[in-house]
């Protein structure tokens, strides 16, 4: 039996800054995971990934990352995505200190 689909977000790195970005429901790229579109349906996830791949002038290497619904929006499942969503643990650099209005 195929494995049950778990919720996803579309994520990538911004072409110019290299920063981690997420695809929103209204087709924007956001710097905040909480603003991402949480995709609960597998077919829709594949379509959204295709949408992302059609925008190579904006992002590099889009893929589907596991996420769960949290109180403020999508939250990471794997610790790698936690680091991508916040920044490195040795310095207060990256998203953990940057403005939400990029």
């Amino acid at each position: 039996m195929p494995r049950a689909f778990t919720p996803k977000v579309v994520t990538a790195n911004a072409l110019l800054e290299g920063d981690v970005v997420y695809l929103t429901e209204d087709d924007r790229w956001t710097r905040q995971l909480t603003e991402a579109e949480l995709i609960e349906d597998e077919a829709h996830a594949q379509l959204r990934l295709l949408d992302a791949e059609m925008r190579p002038g904006q992002v590099v290497g889009p893929y589907l990352a596991d996420a769960v619904a949290g109180p403020d929006g999508p939250a990471p499942v794997h610790f790698r995505e936690t680091f991508r969503a916040t920044g490195p643990s040795n310095y207060a650099h990256g998203k953990q200190v940057e403005s939400k209005n990029v």
Binding site: N13, E17, G18, D19, G61, F83, P88, K95
Partner: peptide, 9 residues
């Protein structure tokens, strides 16, 4: 020498 890493180039 230019990589794309987790948070940045």
């Amino acid at each position: 020498g230019l990589y794309l890493q987790l948070h940045a180039y």
